[in-house]
C-alpha cells in the first residue's frame, strides 16, 4: 500500500492485517517500542484536531520514531499561498510518511499524486473521507463486538457532511450481512454517492428521522454532531434537536450489548450521564485510534514485526 487516501485503498486482507497487528500491539506494546527508530512522521494539519493529530504523534513516538509538522495552516507556508503539491514535495525531503488533514476535499489525494518517496495518509479532507478514523472504528467494533459482519449499525446525526460516516459505511460494505439504519434530518441525509454505493452492493438500509424509533434494533450506535447551523429552518431544528441527543432514557430501549461510538469531539449530542454506561465506548475508541495508527504506520513503512 503506497498511500491511504480512501478506505478502499486497502484490500479487506490489508485491513485485517492492520487490525490483527493492532491487536498484537495492544497485547504487548513494549515489543514494538523501537520498531520505527530512525523513521520520521510529518503531521501536516491545515485545520484543528485533537485526537487525530495527537494519536498519530503518540503512535509514532511509541514506535520509537520521531515526529515533525505543523498544526494549523497559519503556521506553515500555506499561509503564503503554497500549494499542497509543493508542500508535499518539500516535506518528503524531511520525512518518511505524512498524515495530512485539510479542509478541502481531495487535498490528500493531490498530495499523494505529487509524492515520489513519501507515503501519504489522509487524516481527513473536508467533509469527504477520514480513513484512519475508519480503521479506528473497525478495530473498536471488532474488539468490542467480536466481529465485523452480521451487525445492525445505526448512524445518527449529520450524515451529509460527516466524513467519518461516509468512510465507515464504505468500509463496512465489504463485510457480509451488514445492515445500516441512517438516522438524520431529511436535509442531512447521506450524499447520493454513498446511497449509490449501498444500492450497488445490495446492502439493506433504512433512512429515518427519529432515533427512538429504531434504538432497539441496533448492535452499534455511531453518533455524530448535528449543528444548529446545518439546518435549513429553525422549525425543523426545534422539532428534531432532542431526537439526536442520546441520554440515559433513550439508552433504556437499547440492547444490553449495544455499543455507543462517537468520533469525538462531542458537544451535547451525548449527555455526560451516558459516559457511566458500560455501553459507552467512545473513549475506548480514542485509545484504539492510537493502536491502529501504530499498526498502520508499521505496515505502510514496511517495518518487519
Amino acid at each position: 500500500m503506497k498511500h491511504l487516501i480512501e478506505p478502499t485503498d486497502m484490500t479487506p486482507q490489508e485491513v485485517d492485517e492492520v487490525l490483527n497487528l493492532a491487536d498484537r500491539i495492544i497485547a504487548n506494546p513494549k515489543a514494538y517500542a523501537h520498531k520505527c527508530e530512525g523513521k520520521k512522521l510529518a503531521t501536516l494539519f491545515y485545520e484543528p484536531s485533537t485526537r487525530t493529530r495527537l494519536s498519530f504523534e503518540a503512535a509514532m513516538l511509541e514506535l520509537g520514531g520521531s515526529v515533525l509538522g505543523f498544526s494549523s495552516a497559519n503556521s506553515s507556508s500555506a499561509a503564503k499561498g503554497e500549494s499542497v503539491a509543493d508542500t508535499i514535495r518539500t516535506v518528503e525531503c524531511y520525512a518518511d510518511i505524512a498524515a495530512m488533514r485539510h479542509p478541502k476535499e481531495g487535498a490528500a489525494k493531490v498530495a499523494a499524486m505529487n509524492a515520489t518517496t513519501i507515503k501519504v495518509i489522509n487524516a481527513g479532507d473536508g467533509g469527504h473521507l477520514h480513513p484512519t478514523q475508519t480503521l479506528t472504528d473497525l478495530l473498536t467494533i471488532r474488539s468490542l463486538k467480536g466481529r465485523l459482519d452480521d451487525l445492525t449499525i445505526g448512524m445518527c446525526g449529520d450524515l451529509m457532511f460527516g466524513r467519518t460516516v461516509h468512510s465507515l459505511i464504505r468500509a463496512l460494505l465489504r463485510y457480509p450481512k451488514i445492515r445500516f439504519v441512517l438516522i438524520s434530518p431529511k436535509e442531512l441525509r447521506v450524499p447520493d454517492y454513498i446511497r449509490e454505493a449501498m444500492n450497488n452492493q445490495g446492502v439493506e438500509f433504512q433512512e429515518v428521522e427519529r432515533l427512538d424509533d429504531v434504538m432497539d434494533q441496533l448492535d452499534v450506535l455511531y453518533m455524530t454532531r448535528v449543528q444548529r447551523e446545518r439546518f435549513f429552518n429553525e422549525e425543523d431544528y426545534i422539532r428534531l434537536r432532542d431526537s439526536y441527543i442520546l441520554d440515559t432514557e433513550k439508552m433504556e430501549n437499547a440492547k444490553s450489548d449495544m455499543i455507543v461510538m462517537h468520533p469525538l469531539p462531542r458537544v451535547n449530542e451525548i449527555s455526560v450521564e451516558v459516559d457511566k454506561d458500560p455501553r459507552a465506548s467512545y473513549f475506548k475508541q480514542a485509545l484504539y485510534g492510537k493502536y491502529v495508527r501504530m499498526a498502520l504506520i508499521m505496515k505502510m513503512l514496511g517495518v518487519e514485526e
Binding site: 499542497v84 503539491a85 479542509p103 476535499e105 481531495g106 487535498a107 473536508g126 469527504h128 454517492y193 449509490e196
Partner: peptide
C-alpha cells in the same frame, strides 16, 4: 469544498462512474 477551488493549477478531471446514468465524478472530491 473541493481542493480545485483553491489550487488553480490543478486540472479538473472527471471520471465516468456509471455509463447507464451518464454519471461522472470529480477525481478529487467525488
Amino acid at each position: 469544498r473541493c481542493i480545485t477551488s483553491i489550487e488553480q493549477e490543478l486540472p479538473h478531471v472527471f471520471k465516468l462512474v456509471d455509463d447507464g446514468r451518464s454519471t461522472y465524478r470529480c477525481i478529487y472530491c467525488e
